[in-house]
């Protein structure tokens, strides 16, 4: 099977932490959110560090998959996804 391209987008504090606004990763499906985040590091070393605390998603960050569901658990299985959005958990104001 060919690896699947996923658009990873960064907003808010996730953008601050990673220093990125967008990156495309290629990944074998099925995968997990944790693997997607670690794959960012292989392209931009160090970028994933600020997104994680003790191998968990840093507080203040949440992940959206394909504009639909929100997750914070990095072990969440992903069978198919076109985009993964890392954003601030607070979108209120």
């Amino acid at each position: 099977m060919k690896p699947t391209p996923i658009d990873v987008e960064f907003f808010g504090v996730a953008r601050l932490a990673a220093g990125l606004t967008y990156i495309e990763v290629l990944i074998d499906m099925p995968t997990t959110l944790g693997k997607i985040i670690h794959s960012i590091d292989s392209l931009v070393p160090g970028a994933a560090g600020g997104l994680l605390v003790d191998e968990k998603l840093a507080p203040g960050i949440i992940i959206n998959i394909d504009g639909r569901r929100f997750e914070t658990d990095l072990s969440t299985e992903i069978n198919s996804a076109k985009s993964v959005i890392l954003m601030s958990i607070d979108v209120g104001g």
Binding site: L16, P59, G60, G92, G93
Partner: peptide, 15 residues
């Protein structure tokens, strides 16, 4: 700490 980083560093404009 991190829980309020967004408000300090970016403000709500980032929404």
């Amino acid at each position: 700490g991190k829980a309020t980083e967004k408000y300090r560093e970016l403000g709500t404009v980032e929404n």
